[in-house]
């Protein structure tokens, strides 16, 4: 890998650095496996891989605290793994099996975990942005100091509801971090062809929302920016915008031939900017890990991913009755008159 001009001395411990490496590698290997299972027909529908963007979610999860919330789009596998959801449950949801987080009823784009404060997995571009603001609204209302991360893409950043959410979040000082994962393409449309500005985060300024651009191929830079944004929100100062420049290596979804960019463009990013390679180098050059240590980590991760694939293949399809469950919640406290009638 070519050395980065902006290579920073890590301001985190060797253990943390190693953890970032593992977390990012887990996402990458998991996604490669998902791509493979898709090709075999074990995963259906849309499947949007996160390969290339790993540093974004790993850096921000490192900045998040206990009880903080997150919500994102359909490109959600990385977010789920990074916030501690089980690879087995995520992979089994991808194959549409009983062992999946939504018992096979949600699929790749629609997964949730109440336990891990992961509020989805949303298939409609931009919808998660006001929802994220709403999660923050609830926290402020309930009087706790939790923060919500609302992740969305550069393409989503053109949806009107994003700006409606900006206005209300600023107006009501909601503790929400708007994370623009700018991978520079919305399907086949480059940012240049769809967006009136190069710097999307500056769109917060008219609403009075501070923001900044972050190098999303550098997990340390992301972590640092995340710390700052979290501190701002926790202190009750309202929303914050992080525009994180990143890159997706694969097509938009499995069926995208990605003819709108050159192979060289992708290759250059992979070779010169890869976030995982970056940390790997830091670990080796800092004397924190030997090649053998890294091999052991690789193997550990590969095992986890293979196990998740086996689990996802062996887990049975959901019971047929599941078609009719979870459409309505049923606990409805009734008034006294109703009880008397009964």
């Amino acid at each position: 890998m070519a050395t980065r001009k902006t290579a920073k001395a890590p301001n985190v411990s060797a253990d943390e650095l190693k953890q970032y490496y593992k977390d990012m590698l887990l996402i990458r290997r998991f996604e490669e496996k998902a791509g493979q299972l898709y090709g075999m027909g074990l995963i259906g529908g849309f499947c949007h891989l996160y390969i290339g963007q790993e540093a974004v979610v790993v850096g921000l999860e490192a900045a998040a605290g206990e009880g903080d919330k997150r919500v994102t789009s359909y490109r959600d596998h990385g977010h789920m793994l990074a916030c501690g959801m089980e690879p087995n449950g995520v992979m089994a949801e991808l194959t549409g099996r009983e062992g999946g987080y939504s018992r096979g009823k949600g699929g790749s784009m629609h997964m949730f975990s109440k336990e891990k404060n992961f509020y989805g997995g949303h298939g409609i571009v931009g919808a998660q942005v006001p929802i994220g603001a709403g999660l923050a609204f609830a926290d402020r209302y309930l009087g706790n100091d939790r923060v919500t991360f609302a992740y969305f893409g550069d393409g989503a950043a053109n949806q009107g509801q994003v700006y409606e959410a900006f206005n209300m979040s600023a107006l009501w000082k909601l503790p929400v971090i708007f994370v623009i994962e700018n991978n520079q393409y919305a399907m086949g449309t480059s940012q240049k062809r769809s967006t009136s500005t190069d710097e999307i985060y500056t769109r917060g300024a008219p609403f009075g929302i501070p923001g900044e651009m972050v190098d999303g191929m550098d997990v340390l830079a992301v972590k640092e920016a995340g710390d700052k944004a979290v501190a701002h929100c926790r202190a009750g100062k309202g929303p914050y915008i992080l525009e994180i420049k990143t890159y997706r290596y694969r097509g938009h979804s499995m069926s995208d031939p990605a003819k709108y960019r050159t192979r060289e463009e992708v290759q250059k990013m992979r070779e010169e900017k890869d976030a995982i390679e970056h940390v790997r180098e830091l670990l080796v050059s800092g004397g924190h890990a030997s090649e053998d240590d890294l091999k052991a980590i690789d193997k550990e991760i590969k095992d986890i991913v293979n196990k998740s694939a086996d689990f996802a293949k062996e887990s049975p399809e959901p019971a047929l009755e599941e078609l009719w469950t979870d459409i309505y919640a049923s606990d409805i406290p009734q008034g006294a008159a109703v009880e008397q009638d009964a």
Binding site: G44, E93, R97, K105, G107, E317, E322, L323
Partner: peptide, 16 residues
């Protein structure tokens, strides 16, 4: 179609 949101699982989708 059945009176349910569309499930993802292959077996349930067929039923829906």
């Amino acid at each position: 179609g059945k009176d349910v949101p569309m499930p993802y699982a292959a077996n349930l989708e067929k039923l829906a």
